[in-house]
Structure formats: structure tokens, C-alpha cells
Design a protein around this nucleic acid. Structure first.
Length: 647
RNA sequence: GCCAGUGUAGCUCAACGGUAGAGCGGCUGAUUUGUAAUCAGCAGGUUGUGGGUUCGAAUCCCACCGCUGGCUCCA
């Protein structure tokens, strides 16, 4: 039998049955065969020395280190090499293997080491052993076994976790990989030999429950990263460093934005004056846009009686995450969400179809219990402010409303320079409401996104049980994604609370609710901004927008005059009158990431100018005061990302 | 909550069984300075908390508390 291979350029090659990707690569060129890591066969990653499937025709592509798939081969094999090294060091009979997959930037492997603890200091030793294994250039062989034989083999090896895995695999046969003395149940793919392995580094050790379930034993996980090119590894390690440098938990307190006091209020940040300035700018911008888009701002109580939460369903489904307080034998809940409060307002009104859509917005402070181990700066907290809104509308209005929210979101995100991508989650298996309504609603969401020309990914079955939803993920300057905006349709709440509006037919109808938050959480959004800008906020957000720096005491009076002038133009400005050198004061302003430094000395005093320095280090020399003021004002008004003096 | 690491002045860190120290920051004074650190002095710590070992503990042991990295990415 002859197999026809379709190559990426559209041409065909015919090969004999039983040929491997290596044979094919050789037939194309020797050098290609040498560089090949493996292949992609009908979209599936295929080992270099594994015979090709017995089909009439397959699509075929060789993978070399230049292809993105190369990392899959490399990292899978790296995980095995690491496991082999761990077994050599700690003794084969002491080590039980968990799973060892590839992840976004590397790989990990979980081990049960019979009570022995791995610490970060051991990573060096493991790395050394891994290098030896790579040098040994052990051939990596793949073989298949029927499940019962596979279980016997693993019983012999005392690999109890693997046995559990084999039992759950639906196929009749399972595959193994072997390199030297190391053997592992594995789907692959793998490199042809350990000598192909490249630039790697072990990063950290941590505990991880077997299969992610806390009722299971805890295994020890080692994380590593690996790349086909040295420069990629270096770039990645640099990225990790860079992310550490931008950590909002460090920059935030440094710049006087907020502090955390876990002894007093774990998971509840304290915002200092400068932090509040930034938050208030975000809020002001938000309010302006929401007014334009026809929202009415409301305020609802922080704590509300338990009966409301029974009715909303939170008592049954969300109680574990809620805080409670009791007075006069009545239980009150601290709100974890704003929707029930908004519904109380809706219900207190008699709503006509002419009133819809009704858009209620609220900067609602919500509290949700999070387990102490997961708290993280401003990103994972127990109390935060949602820029929430609920739109009550008819099914027919969904599309327009969602499009409106999507456009509003776009406007809200635009001054920050974020790229973003969108996901649409559809009906899950466990859902409420009839499928027809779901379909209608989901199609309305799709049409809204399509009409905006937004690209989106569909997550089948990932919607909430009460309705489909749209999620926005923004990418910061390091390319890290953050889920922020969410738009969720809700058929359930209107039902539970028996919401109605009077239709044109003089009959009562049920409205639909759209929950939506755009920043998501103000606190979290601030955290993202701190990391995105590394604390150097665009001028409109900067807590101090300009600092006047007098050179000597005799310039203090003029400096104060300059400060007052800027202030009357609404610019946030201060003066550094400390008895220090100019260099010192410039450095201080620089470290505070103040956008404009206005140095004033004899020359400036005489001519009524200021010497402008930008935080980029750029010295603009002397400039008339009015010119600087109008530039700063323009920058603030237009919410520009960079100084108008910088291209 | 669980695993590992970690906890010394406001911050960054030193001392690793023998009297807790430095730099930065703060305060005071001198200096009057031209674009990323002028000089001097002063204040500041029950070494996270509690217990134990020891003649003696920041240091060794135990417990608790906080913090950091993980605990989703299924051979």
C-alpha cells in the first residue's frame, strides 16, 4: 500500500507504508531530516520515528525548531528528562510519577517522593543531572500496549498514579515512551532523542494536589521552561524579571497609591491620597461616558436582609463566599453582587415598555470571601468596587443594548492603549430557560459583535447557567491577558423576582436583564494599570502632573507663583522647596514618575519662563509658561498616552 | 485551607550560639546648589507572636500568625 502525503506547498509525495516522518524528510533533503523535530500529520503532532498512519492520503508537514509546534516536542521531552533526573537522584523506587504536561511557557511534572521534600536549592542538582541526560543523547522510543498489559507493566514499576490514568483512558491501547532506563506512560509527542533538547531552566517547586483535587494526596510539582533558541529562553527569563519589576504590590506602596494591612484587613486594600486621585480620574471618565450612553447612576445598600438573598438564589449558591452580620435576631448579608439591590429599585417602580431599556449603573462596593491563600495584591481581594450596571430590556432590545455596551467598552478602554480580545460563551448543559430563548439571545450577542466588526472566540457550553455571556480580555504591555469587562444575559433573576413591565398590548411582560461591568473591579483595574505603565501613568491619571523645582531658595517665590498659575488651570502641581541640589530634586521627581518637571532659576525668573524636563529624561529647555500649560492641558483633555512634546 | 520557601528599623539588606548593624528614607543644622543622590548630626528595633533547648538565642527546636510562589491548563 502506498500513502499519499499532501505537503504544505500543495504538492504530493508518495511513500511506502510503514515509512516515518524521518524517511519523508530525508527524501526531501538530508539537512531537513537533520533539523526535523517531528511532524504534523493531519493536524496531529507525530514523532519523527513513528510510522505514518495507514491511510490513503494524509496532510504532512515537517516540524523544525522554527515551527511553533517544536516547543511542544521539546517541552514534553524536557518533562521526561526532568522526571528521569529526579528518579536518578532520589532513587527510582522512591519516585511515583504524576503527570508532566507542557504549559504556556514551559512544562512541569508532579512527583510523589515518598515524603522527601524538594526545595529550590535542589533544582540546581536536578538541572545538572538533566544536562547529563541530554549529553548521553538517549534514543527516545515509542511503543504501544493493550491496556491490561500496560497496567501490569505499571504495577511492576509500582507507578500507582499511572495505573489510575490508564484505567480512565477510553482507547484500547496506550502509548509509552522509553529513554535509557526511564519509562513513562505518555501520549507524546517527543523528540527523537534526548540530545535534541535545548535551552531550559527549572523555575520553582510547589505543592499540587493529584488531579487538582484537594481530597487527593499532594504531590510536589517542579516547573521549568524550555526553548529551542537560547535567545528565546533569555527573553522569557527577562520577561519574568520585567514582570517582577512592574509588580503593583511593590510600585503601589512606593508611589504612595495604596498599602495592604493583612493584620487589620486581609484582602482589603487601603488607598492613600494619590491612589484615590487615580481612582477618581477613572471614575470621572466612566461617569461621563455612562451619562452619554443613557445610564442612570444609583446607590444601593452595602448590607441587605437575608430574605433578599434567599430570593435571588445567592443563599443557595453563593453563601460560602458571603459575609454576614446579625442584629435584633435578623441576619443581614454584605452584598457580594449588586444585582438584587438594582432589582429592588426596579420593583419599586411601575415600568412601562416606554421606559425600556432601563439602564442602572452603580459603583458598588462588594465583598466576597476568598480563601486566605489566594489573596494577591489588588488582583485578588475580598472587597472591591464593581463598575456595575444592569440593563432591563425586552428580548428584542438585547442586540442593540449589547452593541451599545460593546461600543461603550471600546471607548472606555481606548485611552489606555490596551489591545483586547473577546470571548462568547454559549449555553451550558446545566441551564435554565428554554433553548429557543437561549438561541435567540446568543444570536443577538453574535450579531452585536459582528456588527461591530469585533473578532471573537466562541466557548461552547461555557456560559453561566442563567444566560450566555461575553468576556473581554485586555492585554497589557507585556502581552499578559486580563479578564476585565463582562456582559451577561440573565433570564433567571427576572423570573425569580417576578419582574414585569406593561407592554403596548396592555399585558404584563417579563424583561431580560443584562449584567455588565467594564473595568470589572476598579481596584484590580488600577493594579493592571500600575503594571502596564510601570507606575508612570499618562498625565491625565498621574497623581502629580507637574512639579516645580526651584534651583535655590531665592527662586521659591517665583516657583510658588508658577505653581499657583498651573493650579488655576486645573493641573495637579506641587513645589519642591527642600534645601537640596537640583539634581537631587530632579531625581526625586523622576522616581515619583511625575510627567513634567519645571525647573526655575534666575534665567526663568527674569524671562517668565520655565525649563521643562520630561520624565523620559528629555530636556526641553526654557519655554514660556503659557506654552507648557496649554500643552499639559491638551494632553490631559485628550487623555494622551504620551507627552505632546514627544513623538 | 494544603505544599514549599520566608519573616531583623518606614524601605533594601547584614550579623547565622557570645553586647543587633549599614545604606536609603525621616528629623535637625550647615550649604544655595542648573536636570537621576551636598555634608554633618540625631531619632528609629522586646529581631512576626508564644513556648522550649542553652550559662547565653535574631541564630537551634516546636506551635501559631503574616507574606511569597504554587495548588486550572488532565498520560
Amino acid at each position: 500500500m502506498i500513502v499519499r502525503l499532501k505537503l504544505p506547498d500543495g504538492s504530493y509525495v508518495e511513500i511506502e507504508n510503514g515509512s516515518t516522518p524521518e524517511d519523508v524528510a530525508k527524501s526531501i533533503s538530508e539537512s531537513l531530516a537533520k533539523r526535523a523535530f517531528g511532524a504534523v500529520v493531519d493536524g496531529q503532532l507525530w514523532d519523527l520515528k513513528r510510522p505514518l498512519p495507514q491511510k490513503d492520503e494524509v496532510e504532512f508537514r515537517v516540524v523544525t525548531e522554527k515551527d511553533p509546534e517544536a516547543l511542544e516536542f521539546l517541552r514534553h521531552t524536557m518533562a521526561h528528562i526532568m522526571a528521569q533526573a529526579v528518579m536518578r537522584i532520589y532513587g527510582k523506587d522512591k519516585v511515583k510519577l504524576g503527570i508532566g504536561p507542557t504549559i504556556e511557557n514551559g512544562f512541569y511534572y508532579d512527583f510523589d517522593l515518598d515524603g522527601v521534600k524538594i526545595t529550590e536549592d535542589d533544582l540546581n542538582r536536578i538541572e545538572e543531572e538533566m544536562k547529563k541526560i541530554i549529553e548521553e543523547d538517549l534514543e527516545i522510543e515509542r511503543f504501544e500496549l493493550p491496556k491490561d498489559e500496560a497496567i501490569k507493566l505499571m504495577e511492576k514499576e509500582n507507578q500507582t498514579y499511572k495505573i489510575e490514568l490508564i484505567k480512565e483512558i477510553p482507547d484500547d491501547k496506550v502509548s509509552f515512551y522509553k529513554q535509557g532506563e526511564f519509562l513513562d506512560l505518555c501520549r507524546g509527542p517527543h523528540l527523537p532523542s534526548t540530545g535534541y533538547a535545548r535551552y531550559f531552566k527549572l523555575l520553582s517547586v510547589s505543592g499540587a494536589y493529584w488531579r487538582g483535587d484537594e481530597r487527593n494526596p499532594m504531590l510536589q510539582r517542579i516547573y521549568g521552561t524550555a526553548f529551542t533558541k537560547k535567545s528565546d529562553l533569555e527573553a522569557h527569563l527577562k520577561f519574568v524579571e520585567e514582570a517582577k519589576r512592574r509588580d503593583h504590590r511593590k510600585i503601589g506602596p512606593q508611589l504612595g497609591l495604596f498599602t495592604l494591612h493583612p493584620d487589620v484587613a486581609p484582602g482589603l486594600p487601603f488607598f492613600h491620597p494619590k491612589g484615590v486621585i487615580v481612582l477618581n480620574e477613572l471614575i470621572e471618565f466612566w461617569r461621563k461616558l455612562h451619562k452619554e450612553w443613557g445610564y442612570q447612576e444609583i446607590m444601593t445598600p452595602l448590607i441587605m436582609h437575608e430574605r433578599l438573598w434567599h430570593q435571588s438564589g445567592h443563599w443557595d449558591h453563593y453563601k460560602e463566599n458571603m459575609y454576614f452580620t446579625e442584629k435584633e435576631n435578623q441576619i443581614y448579608a454584605v452584598k457580594p453582587m449588586n444585582c438584587p439591590g438594582h432589582i429592588v429599585i426596579y420593583k419599586s417602580m411601575s415600568v412601562s415598555y416606554r421606559d425600556l431599556p432601563l439602564r442602572f449603573s452603580e459603583l458598588g462596593k462588594v465583598h466576597r470571601y476568598e480563601r486566605s491563600g489566594v489573596l494577591h495584591g489588588l488582583f485578588r481581594v475580598r472587597g472591591f468596587t464593581q463598575d456595575d450596571a444592569h440593563i432591563f430590556c425586552t428580548v428584542e432590545q438585547i442586540e442593540d443594548e449589547v452593541r451599545g455596551v460593546a461600543e461603550l467598552t471600546h471607548q472606555l478602554y481606548s485611552p489606555f492603549g490596551f489591545e483586547y480580545f473577546v470571548e462568547l460563551s454559549t449555553m451550558p448543559e446545566d441551564h435554565m430557560g428554554d433553548e429557543e430563548t437561549w438561541e435567540k439571545a446568543t444570536n443577538a450577542l453574535k450579531r452585536a459583535l459582528d456588527s461591530m466588526g469585533l473578532e471573537y472566540r466562541i466557548n461552547e457550553g461555557e456560559g453561566a447557567f442563567y444566560g450566555p455571556k461575553i468576556d473581554y480580555h485586555i492585554r497589557d504591555c507585556l502581552g499578559r491577558p486580563w479578564q476585565c469587562a463582562t456582559i451577561q444575559l440573565d433570564f433567571m433573576m427576572p423570573e425569580r423576582f417576578d419582574l414585569k413591565y406593561m407592554g403596548p398590548d396592555n399585558v404584563e411582560h417579563r424583561p431580560v436583564m443584562i449584567h455588565r461591568a467594564l473595568y470589572g473591579s476598579l481596584e484590580r483595574f488600577l493594579g493592571i494599570l500600575i503594571e502596564h505603565f510601570e507606575g508612570a501613568f499618562p498625565t491625565w491619571l498621574a497623581p502629580v502632573q507637574a512639579r516645580v523645582i526651584p534651583i535655590a531658595d531665592r527662586h521659591n517665590e517665583y516657583a510658588e507663583k508658577v505653581r499657583k498659575t498651573l493650579e488655576t488651570h486645573g493641573i495637579r502641581v506641587d513645589v519642591d522647596t527642600k534645601s537640596h541640589t537640583t539634581s537631587y530634586k530632579v531625581r526625586a521627581a523622576q522616581l515619583e514618575k511625575i510627567p513634567y518637571m519645571l525647573v526655575v532659576g534666575d534665567k526663568e525668573m527674569e524671562t517668565g519662563t520655565v525649563a521643562v524636563r520630561l520624565r523620559s529624561g528629555k530636556d526641553l529647555k526654557q519655554m514660556p509658561l503659557e506654552k507648557v500649560i496649554s500643552a499639559i492641558k491638551e494632553e490631559i483633555d485628550k487623555k494622551l498616552l504620551h507627552s505632546v512634546f514627544e513623538e
